[in-house]
């Protein structure tokens, strides 16, 4: 892997890796460290891995997940919902009061997602936020396709029920 290829294939997905790390660690600083370490590791080991790795993105996601879980488990970090980076909303027909209520609801949905069991949380993140295929999710998380589908179904079902009951 050359410098140019690294910049074309791996470096552009750093935001994706960061969001994934943030989803697991719940900490901005930890997620930044994870991305830094993953990019370094990819750069150093890519030449010897280049024959084995078919999908660099999935491989990077796997590295990110493993590194994030290591950090989370070793430091027993308390997970918090990442609420930073609130983007502007495009709904132009709501009143300010409705907007505030809407923001509360959005924040609650984010919290619900963050409180899902680990596997459901990661599958839902990779599908609904990063828009990965079932195959890519299975490869990234080292689980079967059936497990991907089951966990995604359970995650969405949980969120929907909570939204209805809240």
């Amino acid at each position: 892997m050359t410098w140019a290829i690294f910049h074309e294939q791996v470096f552009p997905i750093r935001h994706k890796l960061y969001r994934f790390a943030l989803r697991i660690t719940g900490s901005v600083h930890e997620a930044e460290d994870v991305v830094q370490e993953v990019l370094e590791k990819v750069w150093k080991t890519a030449p010897e891995q280049s024959d084995n790795v078919q999908n660099w993105e999935a491989w990077c996601m796997t590295l990110t997940r493993n590194r994030s879980l290591d950090k989370t488990r070793s430091q027993s970090l308390r997970r918090t919902a990442p609420l930073e980076g609130v983007a502007e909303r495009s709904s132009n027909t709501v009143t300010p009061a409705q907007a505030t209520e809407q923001d509360d609801l959005v924040a609650r949905v984010k919290l619900m997602m963050q409180q899902l069991p680990e596997k459901q949380r990661l599958v839902m993140h990779l599908r609904d936020i990063e828009e990965l295929s079932y195959e890519e999710i299975a490869e990234s998380l080292s689980i079967s396709l059936d497990q991907v589908k089951v966990n995604l179904h359970r995650a969405r079902k949980t969120i929907r029920e909570k939204m209805i009951h809240d």
């Binding site: 750093r14 935001h15 890796l17 960061y18 969001r19 943030l22 997620a31 930044e32 991305v35 990442p82 930073e84 980076g85 609130v86 983007a87 909303r89 709904s91 809407q102 609801l105 959005v106 924040a107 609650r108 949905v109 984010k110 997602m113 993140h125 609904d128 936020i129 990063e130 969120i159 929907r160 939204m163």
Partner: peptide
């Protein structure tokens, strides 16, 4: 259900 998809959109906008 709109907040659900707004949450997804906002989470996707998070950047390093």
């Amino acid at each position: 259900v709109a907040p659900m998809f707004q949450a997804l959109r906002e989470e996707r906008a998070v950047q390093l």
